[in-house]
């Protein structure tokens, strides 16, 4: 089935058994992001110590892709230096914007390369990016609370989301 390229077994595994789920203390910043077109929501906390992402915790509601992506993302960035983690976010964003033309570097993105197939489905790219954008926003706030901009609640679209991804249809 063609869909198997999107619903990789590794994605379904993370969906069924998500890692790092649940909101934990201590944290430096907490954000709430939503995908208004499909109702996916995530509340995400970040703890940063000495330039390292010490913890990412979250509660989320959404489809298998968004749930699995939150699990993969948090597992990938926890323990990384903030700069390295931001580089991973850029890599993942590029993969998601590739419209199925990129495979992703497994040495860098690890389990996140499983989402390469999702990039062929424009309506689902936002699902995969939701938790990444929430993490990026929370991290910016954690690192420099004064510099962080934008509302933390009900952002209409995640910052940095590909502008050419079509919105879903209206009711």
């Amino acid at each position: 089935m063609k869909l198997d390229s999107m619903y990789q077994e590794i994605i379904l595994d993370h969906y069924r058994n998500p890692l790092h789920r649940g909101l934990r203390d201590p944290f430096d910043a907490e954000v709430h992001h939503v995908n208004p077109t499909c109702g996916d929501e995530v509340t995400l906390r970040v703890k940063v110590s000495d330039g390292v992402v010490e913890d990412v915790s979250y509660e989320s509601e959404g489809c298998s892709i968004s749930q699995a992506s939150a699990s993969v993302m948090s597992d990938l960035v926890i323990g990384k230096k903030v700069d390295e983690a931001l580089e991973l976010e850029r890599e993942f964003l590029a993969l998601m914007q590739s419209r199925g033309t990129a495979e992703g570097d497994e040495d860098v993105l690890e389990d996140a390369v499983a989402f390469a197939g999702v990039s062929k489905y424009p309506a689902r790219v936002k699902c995969a990016l939701l938790s990444w954008m929430a993490w990026k926003d929370a991290t910016a706030k954690a690192v420099d609370p004064a510099a962080a901009t934008g509302a933390s609640v009900a952002a209409p679209a995640p910052a940095g989301a590909p502008l050419d991804v079509p919105e879903q249809e209206k009711p």
């Binding site: 869909l3 996916d40 489809c63 892709i65 749930q67």
Partner: peptide
Amino acid sequence: IHPHDVGQL
């Protein structure tokens, strides 16, 4: 099963 997944399948 999230409706997004239902719709996709």
